[in-house]
Every structure is written in structure tokens, then in C-alpha cells.
Nucleic acid binder design. Structure first.
Length: 187
DNA sequence: CTTTCGATGATCT
DNA sequence: GATCATCGAAAGG
């Protein structure tokens, strides 16, 4: 009887991205089950950490198990969970969550959208969970964050990442098999 | 169903 | 000036 995978922030971002599927993430009591992630590793030209530390990505080179928050297209806040990979900054983008906690607050933040779209996409996750620059660099094991690994083993599916122009072919997008809360179907 | 495009600001060349 | 780990609305098949 295998135990659910523990979350290892010292290992590779690909392993962490896979292990995070099914984990429960809350921010100030709002959130749910992670159903979609993408890995961004040290050697990855699509990763913000690829060119080394700078003011924006500093959190990716800080302690593992902390948050890296960045502004996307000038509009959205996107949340990454930082890990360390061969001493280099790496992280996992949280792309979609199945809402289980604080749905009223999510709806208030997201406006009049279908419940299936509350957290279906990295920008939507950021908005629904109230993520801002203030969360950048905060530890994930203390308030306002709460993170616990998947309570039971889950079936994970894999596909190419979304919305990038470099290393498009890398199969580093992970999803919960059969979930209708993912941002897009898997091939 | 698909593709296109504007919003909006930090970062890169 | 161009690009970008996006979203939502609009237009086209």
C-alpha cells in the first residue's frame, strides 16, 4: 500500500510538478486541490530563472518551499512554488485548482464567471486566491499559505506546456486525470 | 468549434 | 521597439 508522494522541494521541478497534482493549496483559507502544474527547470530556456538571478526572479534563487510570484502580461499574478535543482533556481507554475475552500471569496474576486473557470489557468488562480506581489518570497508552510501533499495517490497525465515560445516540446505540463477543472484538455 | 486581438506593464534586445 | 509562463471578448467557419 504505497503512501502518497511527499513534496520534495530539494529535487527536480519536474518531479515536484508531478507530485503536486492532488495536493491541497490554500491562501488565507481559500483554494483547493491542485489539478494542473508546469515545471520550469534550471536548464530550461523558457524558465524565468534560466539567465540567472535578477530583481524579478530573486525568489526562485531563495529558499526552496517558498513562493515566486510574477506579473504576467502586465495584468495577471501567477504563482510558482520554488524548488532547488542542482543549486539553481527552479519552480513549478500552479496552472489550475479544483476549488474546495472559500468559493464565495473566489467568486467575489473573479466576478461573474462559470464555477469551472474560477481557477482554470494561472492568471485565474492568482486572481481567485488573491495573489499579489506581497506573496512573493513567502514560505509555503506558514500563513497565509497552507500546503499539504495529496492525501491519496492520484493518476497524473502529461503533455507539452502552454503559452511558451521556447522548449515547447518538453512534456512538463501535468494534470489530474479526468479533472474538468484544468485550463485546457490534454492531448 | 476556431482564430484574432486588445489590455497593460515589466523585461529584454 | 518587441516580447511575454494570460484572459476574455469578438469575429469567422
Amino acid at each position: 500500500m504505497p503512501a502518497a508522494a511527499a513534496l520534495d522541494f530539494q529535487g527536480s521541478s519536474v518531479d515536484l510538478a508531478r507530485a503536486l497534482i492532488g495536493a491541497v493549496l490554500l491562501v488565507d483559507g481559500v483554494g483547493g486541490r491542485i489539478v494542473e502544474t508546469e515545471a520550469y527547470d534550471a536548464e530550461d530556456p523558457a524558465s524565468h530563472s534560466h539567465r540567472g538571478p535578477d530583481p524579478r526572479n530573486a525568489s526562485m534563487f531563495g529558499p526552496p518551499g517558498h513562493a515566486y510570484v510574477y506579473r504576467s502580461y502586465g495584468i495577471h499574478w501567477c504563482l510558482n512554488l520554488v524548488c532547488r535543482e542542482a543549486g539553481h533556481g527552479a519552480g513549478v507554475l500552479v496552472r489550475a485548482i479544483e476549488p474546495t475552500h472559500g468559493q464565495e471569496r473566489m467568486r467575489a474576486r473573479r466576478g461573474p464567471v462559470a464555477d469551472l473557470l474560477l481557477c482554470a489557468g494561472p492568471g485565474r488562480v492568482g486572481q481567485a486566491l488573491g495573489i499579489t506581489r506581497a506573496h512573493d518570497g513567502l514560505p509555503l508552510d506558514r500563513a497565509p499559505f497552507a500546503l499539504r501533499s495529496a492525501p491519496q495517490p492520484v493518476e497524473v497525465i502529461v503533455g507539452p506546456r502552454i503559452g511558451i515560445s521556447k522548449a515547447q516540446e518538453m512534456p512538463w505540463r501535468f494534470g489530474l486525470q479526468g479533472s474538468c477543472f484544468v485550463s485546457r484538455r490534454f492531448p
